[in-house]
């Protein structure tokens, strides 16, 4: 198998740590009590902006739509120079080439969903070819989905092997493993799926496809951050986190940053180790950033929609 993970002892995933629902939800709520003001607010907003995977995952996506999104990714709000760019643009495999070309050497990554996204209901062979196609077209990052059906059947080895195989197909591209937490049914299962993904070689663990509700929530993300923390202490390896879906307001994004800081610490506070999968969050952040700088809110019409 993969050389990197061969020195790590694989645990019995049915013994993954349990999560108390009341406790985790209380802890997550506690982060929302932090009051983020003045320069911490502005710095937090800029950081969140820089952590976005600007996403379009629609059946009706076209080259034109993707090109416009890629322009937006590089020019978030030119009226205010000095803003950071987003971290990546996230598209379907068929759009990777267009996105790669449009982003050029801007430094913005191209992320591609793969493995029969969003359901994952296909054969391993198809999933591997899907992944290889995306990577061959220039994807820097691959967002795969786990086989939730197999997971819920208790076939953890199947899920593990599939992730490991996709990781191999990724080559040097970073692998994000989408657990689709909204389909897993409990925090215990989210924790177990997180452990499987990390031990199988995930670079990121990600909450959701964005196609299922509920998508990312603070408690679900906290379960995953705590799994990352335990994995780090166990193996010395850092794993990145990506909550996706349902995060569209700046205030909520700041709550996530507070949770990230107080759970994993400062090493994770950058876009190598944390991303927001979102499409409308960017404009809300921009609106708040402009407000912090000018003291007044501007109408939505002053921020471009791509």
């Amino acid at each position: 198998m993969i050389a990197e993970t061969s020195t790590i002892k694989i645990p019995n995933f049915s013994l993954s740590p349990r999560v108390d629902q009341v406790g985790i939800e209380e802890r997550a709520a506690r982060f929302t009590k932090r009051s983020i003001k003045k320069e911490s607010k502005l710095n937090g907003l800029l950081l969140a902006l820089n952590m976005i995977d600007l996403t379009t995952l629609e059946g009706k996506d076209t080259d034109g739509k993707v090109k416009q999104l890629c322009y937006k990714a590089q020019h978030l709000h030119d009226a205010y120079p000095g803003l950071p760019t987003v971290a990546a643009v996230c598209v379907y495999p068929s759009m990777v080439k267009v996105a790669k070309q449009a982003l050029g050497n801007s430094g913005i990554k191209v992320a591609s969903v793969a493995t029969a996204f969003p359901s994952g209901q296909s054969t391993r062979d198809v999933k591997i070819r899907d992944t290889k196609y995306a990577v061959a077209n220039g994807a820097d990052e691959v967002d795969m989905v786990i086989s939730r059906g197999k997971f819920l059947m208790g076939e953890y080895n199947f899920v593990f092997d599939e992730i490991a195989a996709v990781k191999e197909a990724c080559g040097s591209a970073r692998l994000k493993v989408i657990l689709e937490t909204g389909e897993l049914g409990s925090y215990d299962k989210v924790r177990r799926a997180s452990d499987i993904a990390m031990y199988a070689g995930a670079n990121f663990i990600k909450t959701s496809t964005g196609k299922i509700s509920p998508a990312a929530t603070l408690p679900v993300t906290l379960v995953m951050l705590e799994a990352i923390r335990d994995f780090y202490y166990e193996t010395g390896k850092m794993i990145a986190m990506k909550p996706a879906g349902g995060i569209s307001k700046s205030k909520l994004a700041l709550h996530y940053l507070v949770m990230l800081k107080e759970t994993l610490g400062d090493a994770w506070m950058n876009n190598e180790w944390f991303r927001f999968g979102a499409s409308s969050l960017a404009n809300d952040l921009l609106m708040q950033i402009v407000k912090e700088k000018t003291g007044v809110y501007q109408s939505k019409d002053y921020f471009s929609i791509d």
């Binding site: 020195t7 790590i8 932090r34 009051s35 983020i36 003001k37 003045k38 320069e39 911490s40 607010k41 710095n43 937090g44 950081l47 923390r229 780090y232 202490y233 166990e234 193996t235 010395g236 940053l257 800081k261 107080e262 994993l264 610490g265 400062d266 090493a267 506070m269």
Partner: peptide
Amino acid sequence: TKAKNNTLKLKFDSGWSYAPA
């Protein structure tokens, strides 16, 4: 690996901090 793990430490005191509120 064990020896390395003993030196692992999360850092909470640098980077983004909260302004007085």
